[in-house]
Amino acid sequence: MTLEFDLFWSFRSPYSYLATPRLAALQEEYDVKINVRPVYPIAVRIKGFFKQVNPLWPPYLLKDTVRIAEMEGLPYAWPSPDPIVMDIKSGEVPEEQPYISRLTRLGVAAAEKGKGMPFLYEVSRIIFGGVKGWNEGTHLQEAAARAGLDLAELDALIEKDPDHYEKTIAENEAAQKAGGHWGVPLMVFEGEPFFGQDRISHLIWRMEQKGLKKRS
């Protein structure tokens, strides 16, 4: 029996990026289905979040993510441009969010095409992998193609019915909360939440208790 779990994931989360190669490898090695459920980052979901955050957190996050990337052998740099438009000094996040809105909707469209994991893998790699101007030229188009998707087709689907994608994102965020956590990456297996890129081994351990098998 194929096991499955929900993956709540954000295009602005470095930890989501750092977890993705291992999650993709998990799906390739084991008989498991990953239900990709993109959500908006916490900066969008919780108004004023960065006005209240502990000032020690951002510098620690940068040190920690650089360390993990080095350990995992992954290319890593803070995105240019940042998927979130915000005033770094004040923590103000405007309502208009052209980058993250498009990316999150594209993630939903890719998941509905059955290519969620490849799309997350390829797109996050250009966002966090040191590609300056990842939103310009053909970077996104080529990343989508490597995932087996046509970017123009995805954009057309979203333009035709944007409310559908926003509704799905809202449903994903509600399911994330119901799953027991607010952060990403969050894996929820049979109602049990596993939060963070360092909980993948725990997730595998639990699924093995439930009969997880390697692919033949």
Rank of each mutant, 00 (worst) to 15 (best):
I46S: 11
M86V: 12
F49S: 00
P21H: 02
D82E: 14
P83E: 04
V53T: 03
R105L: 13
L61N: 05
E95G: 05
V44W: 01
P59Y: 11
R105A: 14
Q52T: 12
L56E: 04
T65M: 10
V36P: 03
V108L: 01
S80E: 15
N35V: 06
Y99E: 02
F49P: 01
F50L: 11
L61M: 13
P58Y: 00
G73R: 01
L61T: 10
D64G: 05
E96P: 00
P21K: 01
P81G: 09
V85D: 06
R102G: 14
G107R: 12
D31I: 14
V36M: 02
K33N: 04
S101N: 15
Q97H: 02
T104I: 15
E96M: 05
A110L: 02
E92W: 10
P59T: 12
I88Q: 13
E95K: 07
S101R: 14
I68H: 15
F49C: 00
P75S: 03
K89V: 13
R67Q: 06
A69G: 08
A77L: 08
G107M: 11
R102A: 14
K89P: 09
I42W: 03
Y30M: 05
A77V: 04
K47Q: 10
R102M: 15
Q52W: 04
A110F: 03
P81W: 11
R37N: 04
D31K: 10
E96V: 09
A110N: 02
P55F: 01
P21Y: 02
Y99G: 02
V39R: 11
V108F: 07
K33D: 01
P98E: 04
I46W: 06
V39T: 13
A109E: 09
I46Q: 15
P98K: 03
Y99S: 05
D64N: 13
L61C: 06
S80Y: 10
E28N: 11
L23R: 05
I100T: 04
S90K: 05
Y60V: 09
